[in-house]
Design a protein around this nucleic acid. Structure first.
Lengths: 361, 361
DNA sequence: TTGACATATGTAACTAGTTTCATCAACCTC
DNA sequence: GAGGTTGATGAAACTAGTTACATATGTCAA
């Protein structure tokens, strides 16, 4: 309101407008000043104003000051849409993650958003519910509305998404997954290695019968890769897998299923910490003590794992670092056409209290 | 430039382009078709194509089909930026939340995003780290890049943000907070009432000495309101407050501080479930049993609270519903100029195992 | 003094849509 | 058959920026 009044008054001397205002019930939603307004106020051409914004070096000092003053007076902010239309740069990217409900993605996104915003890029978050069809749809609409790049989770996607990426050749980075051979640059950990780290630890502690509790394998290549990593480890123990929902509830249910088996495992390996904490609760509910009755190992290293009682031994995944690196790589790819190379982040075993050597009977 | 090449090929049958391609090292990032291209292919004017997109009813059937065919053939998708420039509608809104690290906000955002996307609106998430200065800055840049509306958390904000909202009169909805008198529409729960619900429950169970563990009050009106709600309850017991970080770690530390006091409280009331779970862990680490030694109550009703052992008695906050309602209200406000009225969502006590009647000695 | 060149700025054409207004044909009424 | 109305479409102006090109001025060397 104030702005419109201001501009009109200023440019067209429509003083009568003041009385208009009185008769209006809805205080009209004020327009913001545009380049032409600034140019008129500063007494220069629109080109000069544009130069002040984009290459101030070429503008003479006192012209620059005049324009700057006009910009301040009108509180002028260039329209992002108009800029986007010419430059093709919309200054936002999209991230496709399975869910916000798992802290591991929330932490990743927090780092991603922080780093992107340092690069003057906004982030649009789209959740896919771990459904590759939904993922492809949301990717399409991100592209349609002008995303300059995508962050996607995992390497396996629907044909529709692969097509989209091939057609548009949009900068897109795969995260939570490392594979140097992947057609798209991957920035993440080697999921097979990460799972092996956890299993090897249990093996080193002497455990032989191990229950693996994991999330859905459908539409989730990270879980599949972790599982095949486990199976690929040269080790002669016995693995039993339990698929469940990735949630505390899912973990608790996994624990119940394990307890209903005739023979208890030596240890339980959970492919994510959310599930591990759920399993811990589930075991407690069944009166089973960790680690005395059974050892427990997770993967992710969520903050809760360090605080739980017993503290959960897990594999630390550097998701914040992954967010920063993915943001940096994507920002550079967009601005310099510099396609990043794959980057492998290492998981690290965090030995805590939930896994102890197998008691010899 | 690239666009010219593409259009030429398509429209003027410049077959030589094939050989061009061979000499090019970089497979050019093919630009998408625009309105003019579609119009040319369909043999109609740009106005007609625009009508097909926006008011297909007024276009004759066979013209419509011709245009539709051209759109499909060229895989034409209208540029969001160009639309935004004329209509002023950018079709995205911004949400300012303190953090993604607390599941309560992650759950809220998930519902918000889901509902907004049904209304063809994208969501840009900005985290403020519970800092009102950062909040104002991020709000400003959301507005600068064209957000059509804002979702903000809590009613207390910096002058800069209030100024921004007054100046632009942008649709903005306050969530996680109910106050019918607030200048902006609020959609949320009455934080004082919610805290009272929890305290009343403990009071009803006979507890008299209650430790309250809560997050920072600085820059957080929700916590302040909950605390003053507790103090306003007509009740003669004794409250001791412990401020800590909102995290599992913060809760555990709170538990340690409580345990270091000469006299133990009857019960512990945590103003958020994340803290409550941390307190539970902290107490377990100190060898104190919940609920036998001390009762514990939280607020939020995160999924983990139902699964924890003991399951944590808490006040359920309908955050998913809040996300849906906020999204609906904001979408309607934006499209119909229909300013929503405040909406109060009720918290609900979830009685579980962590709080039991005070044992008479 | 003139030409060569750099510097600073303006004009107008561009980006990709929407929208106003004009045009034209078809149909209906008198 | 003239006039009025409606329906469908197009030309061109408009949104708010960027940018290619033109122009005006100033500096310096020949």
């Amino acid at each position: 309101m104030k702005l419109v009044t201001y501009v009109n008054t200023f440019l067209n001397e429509q003083i009568k407008r003041t009385s208009n205002t009185l008769t209006q019930k809805t205080p009209e939603p004020k327009k913001r000043a545009n380049l032409r307004d600034v140019a008129k106020v500063a007494g220069v051409s629109v080109a000069t104003v544009s130069r002040v914004l984009n290459e101030p070096g070429v503008v003479k000092k006192d012209t620059l000051e005049k324009v700057q003053a006009a910009i301040d007076a009108l509180k002028f902010v260039p329209s992002a849409a108009a800029r986007a239309i010419n430059s093709g740069r919309t200054r936002f990217v999209g991230a496709l993650v399975p869910t916000l409900d798992n802290a591991i993605f929330a932490r990743f996104l927090a780092a991603l958003e922080r780093t992107l915003s340092e690069r003057q890029l906004s982030l649009i978050v789209a959740t896919t519910d771990s459904d590759l069809e939904i993922e492809a749809e949301k990717a399409q609409s991100l592209v349609d509305i002008g995303a300059e790049g995508l962050i996607i989770t995992g390497a396996a996607h629907s044909d529709a998404l692969h097509d989209l990426l091939n057609r548009t050749m949009l900068p897109a980075i795969v995260t939570s997954f490392y594979d140097a051979e992947n057609p798209l640059p991957t920035i993440g950990y080697d999921n097979a290695a990460v799972a092996q780290l956890a299993l090897q630890h249990l093996a080193d502690l002497g455990h032989r019968r191990i229950a693996v509790v994991h999330g859905p394998v459908h539409d989730n290549d990270r879980t599949r890769t972790r599982l095949s990593g486990l199976r690929a480890l040269p080790w002669t123990g016995e693995l039993t897998t339990y698929e469940t929902e990735i949630s505390h509830r899912g973990g608790a249910e996994g624990a119940r299923r394990i307890c209903s088996q005739p023979q208890k495992p030596d240890a339980i390996l959970c492919l994510s910490d959310v599930v591990a904490l759920g399993v811990l609760f589930g075991l407690q509910a069944e009166g089973i003590t960790v680690p005395d009755d059974v050892s427990l190992v997770g993967i992710d290293d969520l903050p809760s794992s360090a605080v739980a009682v017993p503290a959960i031994t897990t594999v630390h995944l550097p998701v914040s670092q992954m967010g920063e690196k993915a943001a940096d790589a994507l920002a550079r790819w967009i601005s310099d056409q510099e396609r990043p190379s794959a980057e492998r982040l290492e998981g690290r075993l965090m030995e805590r209290q939930s896994a102890i050597p197998l008691r010899s009977i």
